[in-house]
Simulated scan of single mutants.
Amino acid sequence: MHTVQPIKRIDQLEAMKQILHKRSKRDYCLFLIGINTGMRIYDLINIRVDQVMSQANEIHPYLQKSSYLDPPIYFNQSLQALIHEVIEKSDLKREDFLFKSRKSKAPITRQQAYRIIHYAAEEAGIDEPIGMHTLRKTFGYHAYTNGIAISLIKKRLQHQTTTETRHYLGISKIDSSEVKLDINL
């Protein structure tokens, strides 16, 4: 079994986004939520519409799921718009899974999610081993390089120590030249 890595290069992330966007809104949404939230794949594929959409058909800014409360899963404006589009385009009901299988009412399987991500990575020319932890690792790596405290990333990834988180993300040493404390007021 290969150890998978985060996708560190922005151009590769953009290429994967374009490939998935052309292929399927559902698959594109799966990828974007994965790399923007750091959720575990099991939790990601099991999101239900009623956990992201209010009774008034508005997308919640936070996932309504108890296993991610500290810190909660936040959906930025672009993710909220995409989620709403996926729900409308797929004609999903409140009790449906957001990433519903095309063959049944069940969510897509972990294996199908892997095929989706692996296909996009191959098409984007990514040679490094890719797996379902790639999405979480990509989230954590880019959060870290954009100045998010490792302690917060540790909490999101539900790790016990910051050392475990650094090892998971492939950050062997603290390189402050990679961190950007970008405040754009």
Rank of each mutant, 00 (worst) to 15 (best):
L32Q: 15
T145M: 06
R166S: 09
K25Q: 14
H60W: 14
M16H: 09
F99V: 11
A143H: 02
T109I: 01
D96T: 03
A149W: 01
I59D: 04
S101R: 05
D43N: 15
G140R: 05
R48M: 11
R23L: 06
M53P: 01
Q64C: 07
K154A: 00
K65P: 02
E58Y: 08
R110V: 12
S24W: 04
K17C: 12
V179C: 08
I148K: 00
S177Q: 07
I108R: 09
Y28R: 01
L20E: 05
Q12N: 15
E178D: 12
K8Y: 06
K22C: 06
T145C: 10
V52Q: 01
T3R: 10
Q80W: 10
R115K: 05
D175E: 11
F31P: 06
P61V: 04
I7Y: 02
T145H: 00
Y114F: 15
N184E: 11
P129T: 11
D70H: 12
T3N: 13
S101A: 07
I183M: 09
N46M: 08
L157I: 04
K89V: 08
I87H: 07
I10Y: 06
Q80F: 00
S78Q: 13
R136H: 04
D11S: 13
E164A: 14
S172V: 03
S66N: 13
K154E: 01
F99L: 10
K89Y: 08
L185C: 03
K17E: 14
K93T: 10
Q112H: 09
R102P: 07
F31T: 06
L63E: 09
D11N: 09
L98D: 01
Y168T: 09
I150F: 14
D43G: 15
Y74G: 00
S177F: 13
T162W: 10
D27L: 03
A124N: 06
P71I: 04
L20Y: 09
H84C: 07
L98Q: 12
F97W: 10
D91Y: 11
I7Q: 02
A143T: 01
E58D: 10
F31W: 07
G125F: 11
K65I: 08
I35S: 02
E164G: 07
A143C: 01
T165G: 00
A15D: 05
S177G: 04
I174N: 08
F139W: 15
G170K: 08
Q12W: 05
H118V: 01
S78F: 08
A121P: 10
K8N: 05
E122T: 13
N184I: 12
V49T: 14
Y119C: 12
Q158N: 15
E122V: 11
G125D: 00
G170W: 05
H167I: 09
I41T: 05
D50Y: 08
L152C: 02
I171C: 10
